[in-house]
Amino acid sequence: MGFVHVYTGNGKGKTTAAFGQALRAACAGMNVFIGQFIKGMKYTELDVERYIPNITIEQFGRDCFIKRNPDKIDIELAQKGFEKVKNFILNGTYDLVILDELNVAIYYGLIPVSQVLELLEKRDKDVEIIITGRYAPNELLEYADLVTQMREVKHYYTKGIMARKGIEF
């Protein structure tokens, strides 16, 4: 039986936690799909497929993170990605499906929360699902079986430390 996890909040570590779970699942012989919404930049985690053959990763965004109103292309890329992962979730193609930054895509109106909840309700019940990103809507928090809130207490960014390869990207 698969459960729905939500990793949300303003603290660092949501994607990192999801990738840790992906690693654990893959090492247990499970097949994992990671769909990254609103991301199109080259992050080092994209190389995971070279090292672990039962993890597949795909990005559904542009080479910039949305910090404003989304453009039409942002909506199209997110919808296209959602359609792809929808098939995996309905058909049980993968044992674990991670929808990285889906909460942010919902927040910016790229994908309606109603569509996400409908998919979760109809999903293959053996598929484990992890949804990450800030701004998780209350409806999703209520639906999920597990919710983890990442809360920033202290961060070195405030001291001017920039993102570091292998740690933040």
Rank of each mutant, 00 (worst) to 15 (best):
V6F: 05
V6M: 05
Y7H: 12
Y7E: 07
T8D: 07
G9H: 10
N10Q: 12
K12I: 07
K12T: 05
G13K: 08
K14P: 05
T15R: 05
T15C: 06
T16C: 01
A18F: 01
A18H: 02
A18P: 09
A18R: 02
A18T: 10
Q21L: 07
A22T: 14
L23G: 08
L23S: 12
R24W: 07
A25S: 15
A25N: 14
A26D: 05
C27I: 07
C27M: 06
A28W: 00
A28R: 09
G29L: 06
G29S: 11
M30R: 11
M30A: 13
M30L: 15
V32H: 08
V32M: 10
V32W: 01
V32T: 15
F33A: 15
I34P: 05
I34A: 03
I34D: 04
G35Q: 12
G35M: 13
G35H: 13
G35S: 13
F37A: 07
I38C: 04
K39N: 04
G40P: 02
T44N: 04
E45C: 10
E45S: 09
D47H: 03
E49I: 13
Y51V: 11
I52P: 15
I52Y: 10
P53D: 15
P53A: 15
P53W: 06
P53H: 15
N54D: 12
N54C: 13
T56Y: 00
T56S: 14
I57P: 07
E58C: 09
E58N: 12
Q59R: 10
F60P: 07
G61V: 08
G61N: 03
R62Y: 01
R62S: 01
R62Q: 09
R62K: 12
C64M: 13
C64I: 02
C64R: 14
C64D: 11
C64E: 15
F65Q: 00
I66Q: 03
I66S: 03
K67G: 00
R68H: 12
R68D: 11
P70A: 01
P70L: 04
D71G: 09
D71S: 12
K72F: 08
E76T: 06
L77W: 02
L77M: 13
L77E: 09
A78D: 07
Q79E: 06
Q79K: 14
Q79R: 14
K80N: 07
K80C: 06
K80R: 13
G81M: 12
F82L: 00
E83K: 03
K84D: 14
K84Y: 12
K84R: 15
V85E: 11
V85G: 05
N87V: 02
F88L: 08
F88A: 02
F88P: 01
I89H: 08
I89E: 10
I89G: 01
L90Q: 04
L90F: 08
L90C: 00
L90K: 01
L90E: 03
N91F: 15
G92Q: 12
Y94M: 11
Y94R: 09
D95K: 14
D95P: 11
L96C: 14
V97Y: 06
V97C: 07
L99T: 02
L99K: 10
D100S: 05
D100I: 10
L102P: 00
N103T: 02
N103G: 00
N103M: 03
Y107M: 03
L110M: 10
